[in-house]
């Protein structure tokens, strides 16, 4: 298995400055491309026409800086041996991404943000596991997802016929609205706490086909 990391850079990107900032040994020891291709289950039999550089990284993994096209730079991360598990590979990818962003974000000519980390099988098949930065918006969407809202909306809607058939309208109507309001307020607080706690970390989700 391997990961591809895509970094989206800002409008002031200077390619030469970026390459100077990240090439070995800035983020890890040099690993000649020929050795990197030979170690890669993906590229061993079918190496690419050209890459930028290879280097070693954490967790017994290596990185091939693959391309810098337009405003996106792409990095291939793979285990040096098949013994490197998918979980370890994802951790190594996250750590390399953090190191890379820390290195490049002090300079407007090199700065960037994570677009996505994607996990692939050795055959090149996309597994659907993708890693992206956790934003407050995403944390809020998770807390106010339809799955979470559904029971509360259901409770509010079922209150209507109960009220119509002559029960204590004011108490039930207001209690339903207050209940929904508390749920939304709770969701906002939860999202803010989740975002504060996990900001800077990458969350992985499995995209279902």
């Amino acid at each position: 298995m391997y990961c591809e990391i895509d970094i989206e850079h800002g409008p002031h990107l200077v390619a030469a400055d970026l390459l100077t900032a990240i090439q070995p040994p800035a983020l890890g020891a040099d690993f000649p491309l020929a050795n990197a291709y030979a170690s890669s289950r993906r590229y061993k039999a079918s190496p690419p026409a050209g890459s930028i550089f290879g280097q070693l990284t954490v967790r017994n993994c290596f990185v091939i800086a693959r391309t810098l096209s337009g405003d996106v730079s792409t990095y291939h991360v793979e285990g040096l041996t098949p013994a490197v598990s998918a979980r370890t590979l994802l951790e190594a990818s996250e750590m390399f991404t953090m190191q890379l962003l820390a290195k490049i974000n002090s300079d407007p000519k090199t700065q960037g943000k994570l677009l996505v980390i994607r996990l692939f099988e050795d055959t090149g098949f996309e597994t659907g596991v993708e890693g992206q930065d956790l934003t407050w918006g995403r944390a809020l969407l998770e807390q106010l997802s339809w799955k979470e809202l559904q029971p509360k909306i259901l409770a509010a809607v079922t209150a209507i016929p109960i009220i119509y058939f002559g029960l204590d309208k004011k108490t039930l109507l207001w209690s339903s609205l207050v209940s929904l309001g508390f749920f939304v307020a709770f969701g906002l607080v939860q999202a803010t706490l989740k975002y504060s706690k996990n900001r800077g970390k990458i969350t992985f989700v499995v995209r279902r086909s």
Partner: peptide
């Protein structure tokens, strides 16, 4: 067929995969 979030680039391993 390679599809997903249209903001993302085509995987860089596509060429190697297609040759295989």
């Amino acid at each position: 067929v390679k599809t997903g979030d249209a903001r993302f680039p085509l995987p860089s391993s596509t060429h190697s995969q297609m040759k295989q």
